[in-house]
Write a protein that binds this DNA or RNA. Structure first.
Length: 796
RNA sequence: GCCGAAGUGGCGGAACUGGCAGACGCGCCGGACUCAAAAUCCGGUGGGGGAAACCUCGUGUGGGUUCGAGUCCCACCUUCGGCACCA
């Protein structure tokens, strides 16, 4: 038998699979039901910023192991691949290096695709697409219009990071220490009209329907916190001078009698009005300007409270007290109503502020948790008292129970070039008008310069911008903002189901067959934003009758990060190791094995190449041992000898690890053990069976060498063979090693037959000379017998 | 500060329901093969004591529950991740 030549074998089998279209799966016949048979295995699609790194190798190898495992367990598996190809990095690369973002991503995609093929991942390439293809983003636009026309999308003013020097909006990651990372200018806050999806309308659904999900608890917890539901009350404070009511949200209505002042966020729309009539209006405006410019991090870290009094007063509805209205940046516009009642006695932050500005402090809950100084509510326990106060306010129309969320609506417009155009037209007469379906896609126009200059880059495309209003025919202007790439990735899993449909984003019946995704795999860094948005999108589309399911990802496996030098591999940090050199040196199979062998896949792992030779060594050893087995092992039934039992035990372990425990490193160790044992007895009666088993079990990890060895063992097409099953009878042993403890410490161990009674086990334990020595004539107070495991003798 | 995850040999890690701590691999040490080296193969490898049989200590720290704790409970320390003046 020849030497193990990874390169040669891998390229050979990759060609065989491609020719056989081995991993393409057809769509169902109309009317087919998928629940029992289908399995949709998906990993988060890559962003084509450069080449693959070991983080990608981890995710896609994980997905690959699941794909093979499910396929061979009788499921019809769809496992597609695509590229999240719109977005900022490509646009910035185009600005920095010249060229078109499209050329850049398409070049990267080509490279990534060839790397993926060289890794031998079992992908259904017939479903491949990129989100920047007009054939794809046409339907992104179409879906947006469905949501827009149903009232899910709207426009409102919201602050953005603005660089006054570059005249452009900056993403959070482009702001370093409050300065533009390109030119160093101090970043300002600017209010811009932008597009939003009403994600908050789905807050409760997003929370409640989590019970349908088989996700890691830590990810569910992150989402729960992100949504941040909290129950409390909304209470109206009267501002007499302005003749209006200001609502506040509070979780501590029980402390209302202790509210001694009132605070508005600097961004609160009322502040402008107050400044106009306030004696210290100038000071107020200056404070608001500075607070807006203050980097969020600094504002958040600021232990020192700052603020300005407005000179206006609000009336506390419980006791008619007139309390001063302040403006302070410790109150956030994004949370609650942007206004709070301040209770210095019972809120740490209010307390610090009151001390700084010498504001009154009134204690209304005593050490026993009873209300005091609270009129007719005094003496009640504060929890019940709070409810009573809200109820009393309700009868007077000044308050009601309310629920507040941390979750905000999703701002999805970007003042950028490289994204999906938002298909609406602004008309002087008709307002915002949807582009009709027949005019989709709204193609991204070619422009000269991707740098924004005060206006989004698309505004340069004058010809393109000017367009007749689809409704009245008068001249209108196209939307020049593009969509957030999270919109693209909120439905890509639907498109895979019916990737080349040119009449619709997908056929509803086909999507209903494949969806939801059975196994979703990706970095935990997407546990909140992407996975909340995708869940929101799914629910909204379901409510529009466009799909039949409400949750996109039934099971989720969040893989850890592959770090190098302690931080996550990324092109921008320059700490990237890719698969290419490893494949050349060790082969794809050894690389795939190694990335899953180095540790639990759901935990972060520091990349360290030194062990990869071990997995290569293992494959060589497997190769050699299989060769010896082919030469030496007798034909015929494996029987029930030692190596047969070991093989059955290994099947049971690997199957349980992959199927139930979602553990990907230990199966490799289990197969290594089997191979180690087989190496000692390649001529054993059961050696052929053991070799087959080892090859078959390692196939999801190392499919090329497995296929080659499978053939050498006289079989064909391992990739479509049923997953091996173990014989439970062969897991049973006739004997076991009895552990004998004295006072809980192991003193002896010896092999005994299965089936001895407890008394017999104890008797044997006592016979042991080593145990005798420990007993030393002492009295046994208690004996513990754990069947099939141990005897513990406790001395008095 | 809050929420979550994790702390086990020189290193990555294993030990699933409380029952032999350290599977598997890396590294290292010794041996075989070789003129030699690489590769490969065989053996060893937690600390301390002992010539050895064996004894003893040992899973971040301190307590506790239990016949028995890496695993359960309480308090704490450290690291990583998420969120954060959240009303």
């Amino acid at each position: 038998m020849d030497k193990y030549e990874a390169q040669q074998i891998e390229v050979k089998w990759q060609q065989v699979w491609a020719d056989a279209r081995a991993f393409e799966v057809p769509n169902p016949e109309p009317g087919a039901r998928g629940e029992e048979r289908k399995s949709y295995v998906l990993e988060m699609l890559p962003y084509p910023s450069g080449t693959l790194h070991m983080g990608h190798v981890l995710v896609y190898t994980l997905g690959d192991v699941l794909t093979h495992f499910r396929r061979r367990n009788g499921f019809e598996v769809m496992r597609p691949m695509g590229y999240d190809s719109f977005g900022l990095p490509a646009e910035n690369a185009a600005i920095a290096e010249g060229g078109h973002p499209r050329e850049i991503v398409e070049r990267n995609i080509e490279h990534i695709r060839s790397e993926m093929k060289r890794m031998g991942w079992a992908i259904d390439w017939s479903r491949e697409f990129s989100t920047h293809d007009p054939e794809y983003y046409r339907w992104t636009q179409w879906l947006f219009l469905q949501l827009f026309e149903a009232g899910h999308a709207y426009r409102k003013a919201a602050p953005v990071n603005w660089c006054p020097n570059d005249q452009t909006v900056l993403a959070n990651e482009q702001v370093k220490d409050g300065r533009c990372d390109r030119c160093g200018a101090e970043v300002e806050a600017r209010n811009l009209e932008q597009w939003f999806f009403r994600t908050t309308a789905y807050a409760d659904h997003l929370l409640d329907e989590m019970d349908q999900l088989d996700w890691p608890e830590r990810v569910l917890a992150m989402q729960r916190h992100w949504i941040g539901r909290s129950e409390g009350a909304e209470v109206l404070f009267r501002v007499e001078e302005l003749d209006l009511d200001l609502p506040v949200f509070t979780t501590r209505a029980d402390t209302l009698f202790g509210a001694t002042y009132f605070v508005l966020a600097p961004e609160h729309p009322l502040v402008e009005r107050l400044a106009a009539d306030s004696p210290n209006g100038d000071e107020l405006r200056e404070y608001v300007r500075r607070a807006g410019a203050k980097p969020a991090a600094e504002r958040a870290a600021g232990a020192d409270k700052t603020g300005v009094s407005t000179g206006f007063f609000a009336t506390n509805p419980v006791n008619e007290a007139r309390i001063p209205i302040w403006v302070a940046d410790y109150v956030l516009m994004e949370y609650g109503t942007g206004a709070i009642m301040a209770v210095p006695a019972h809120d740490e932050r209010d307390g610090a502020f009151a001390e700084r500005f010498d504001l009154p402090v009134v204690t209304v809950v005593d050490e026993d948790g009873q209300l005091v100084e609270s009129a007719q509510f005094s003496g009640q326990p504060h929890t019940e008292g709070g409810e009573a106060i809200v109820e009393w306010l309700g009868t007077r129309g000044r308050g009601r129970p309310a629920v507040n969320y941390r979750l905000r609506d999703w701002g999805f417009s970007r003042q950028r070039y490289w994204g999906c155009p938002i298909p609406v037209v602004y008309c002087g007469d008709c307002g915002i008008v949807a582009v009709p379906d027949s005019d989709l896609p709204v193609l991204l126009p070619e422009i000269e310069d991707y740098k924004p200059k005060g206006v989004p880059p698309l505004a340069q495309a004058d010809e393109w911008v000017r367009v007749d209003c689809p409704r009245c025919g008068k001249e209108g202007r196209r939307e020049v903002e593009t969509m957030d790439t999270f919109v693209d990735s909120s439905w890509y899993f639907l498109r895979y189901c019916d990737a080349h449909n040119d009449q619709a984003p997908y056929d509803r019946e086909i999507v209903d067959y494949w969806m939801p995704v059975n196994d979703y795999t990706g970095g935990v860094d997407h546990s909140t934003v992407h996975m909340i948005y995708a869940r929101y999108f799914t629910k909204a589309l379901n409510d529009l009758g466009l799909i039949g399911h409400r949750e996109p990802f039934k099971r989720f496996f969040g893989n850890g990060w592959v770090t190098q030098g302690g931080s996550k591999m990324s092109k921008s940090k320059g700490n990237v190791t890719g698969p290419d050199a490893l494949v050349k040196l060790y082969g794809a199979d050894a690389t795939r094995l190694y990335i899953l062998f180095i540790g639990p896949a759901d935990q972060d792992m520091e990349w360290n190449e030194s062990g990869i030779e071990g997995t290569q060594r293992f494959l060589r050893r497997l190769w050699r041992v299989v060769g010896e087995v082919v030469e030496q092992a007798p034909a015929g039934e494996p029987g029930e000898g030692g190596i047969a039992r070991k093989a059955h035990r290994t099947i049971a372990r690997v199957t349980d690890d992959l199927g139930r425990r979602h553990q990907f490193n230990t199966p490799i160790a289990a197969v290594m053990e089997l191979v180690n044992e087989l190496a000692k007895a390649p001529g054993d009666q059961a050696a052929r069976f053991a070799a087959k088993t080892a090859v078959s079990l390692i196939q999801p990890y190392a499919p090329h060498v497995a296929e080659e060895l499978w053939e050498q063992l006289g079989h064909e097409r391992l990739w479509e063979q049923p997953w091996p099953t173990h014989d439970p009878a062969l897991l049973e042993e006739d004997t076991f090693e009895l552990v004998v403890q004295v006072n809980g410490k192991v003193r002896d161990r010896f092999v005994v037959p299965v089936g001895l009674s407890e008394d017999e086990l104890v008797a044997r334990a006592k016979e042991s000379p080593k145990v005798q020595a420990q007993l030393n004539g002492g009295e046994i107070r208690k004996t513990i017998v754990v069947p099939r495991k141990l005897v513990n003798l406790v001395l008095g």
